[in-house]
């Protein structure tokens, strides 16, 4: 554990000295927090009662999510804000990619990998340290952004019904469980790619592909193919657990010190 903590501290000391990385880490969550608040504000201001809301406005499956006792405006707001749920889930996926994709290939390019691998650190400790160093800030920023979003909801006058929905099980599972699981998967993919390529830019580009499943969910929901509810989220979490286990196994078994040191030039 001591070695893992040392690696985490080392990674953070390096990363947080880079102002651009710091900016990127904090900028995107802020945007993803402000944007839905602005959307909610304008939907509540600009729309009328909308009691006649129908499948022409939102997919028919979504009307079931709104349920009884919810006005048309609130239903539309829930529909809109549900798209941003996926945005919040993107935060822990996108943020760590920058850090994680640089983690191994960056050490290769600066020639610091060989002395590091020459220490008694185990492969598991090294990868765990690198993964946690990248995932933890992303998970914390994701939660922080969601916290800010929740604080902003009453300020912009969001109705209790919409707040109830956002603080419901679907959202909590997405933010508190699915997000961190996705962060772990994306970080492990980035580190895996980082240990196989020679250029940090290539690592970042390949790792960024991990956002595609989220975008797939987003478009599927927009098109009305699926509606993200508790069951969908639980299935997604189940799949992510399997993906995480697979990625961690793949990362530790494929990470070969010898190949990394001798086959990168």
């Amino acid at each position: 554990m001591k070695h893992i903590i040392t690696i985490i501290k080392k990674e953070w000391a390096e990363v947080f000295k880079n102002r651009m990385v710091l900016f990127m880490i904090s900028f995107m969550p802020l945007i993803f927090t402000i944007l839905p608040l602005v959307m909610l504000y304008f939907t509540s201001q600009g729309m009328g009662d909308m009691s006649d809301i129908s499948t022409a406005d939102v997919p028919v499956q979504f009307l079931e999510v709104c349920g009884e006792g919810i006005t048309g405006t609130e239903c539309m707001q829930i529909y809109v804000v549900n798209q941003f749920l996926l945005m919040f889930m993107l935060i822990p996926v996108i943020i760590p990619v920058t850090i994680a994709s640089y983690s191994i290939v960056g050490e290769k390019t600066t020639h610091s990998l060989e002395p590091l691998l020459a220490t008694p650190i185990t492969t598991f400790e090294l990868l765990a340290g690198k993964s946690l160093a990248a995932a933890l800030p992303a998970i914390i920023m994701g939660w922080f952004a969601f916290g800010l979003f929740l604080l902003g909801l009453p300020i912009i006058g969001t109705s209790a019904a919409v707040i109830d929905y956002i603080t419901g099980l679907t959202w909590l599972l997405a933010i508190l469980v699915a997000g961190p699981l996705m962060a772990i998967a994306s970080v492990n993919l980035a580190i895996f790619v980082s240990s196989r390529v020679n250029d940090p830019r290539v690592a970042e580009q390949i790792s960024a592909l991990f956002i595609l499943p989220i975008l797939g969910l987003l478009f599927a929901q927009l098109a009305g193919v699926i509606v993200i509810n508790v069951m969908v989220m639980l299935s997604f979490i189940g799949s992510m657990i399997l993906v995480d286990i697979g990625m961690i196994y793949l990362g530790t078994t494929i990470f070969q010190r010898e190949n990394i040191l001798t086959r990168w030039k």
């Binding site: 080392k10 390096e14 020639h111 060989e114 590091l116 008694p120």
Partner: peptide
């Protein structure tokens, strides 16, 4: 690895970190 010291062909230091921080990291790893 625990019992030998190695000076690699390239120093391979963490450039953004101070000299003492660089050594501090390795002291912990060893």
């Amino acid at each position: 690895r625990r019992s030998v010291g190695i000076l690699t062909e390239s120093p391979g230091m963490y450039e953004r970190l101070s000299a003492s921080k660089n050594l501090d990291i390795y002291a912990h790893l060893y």
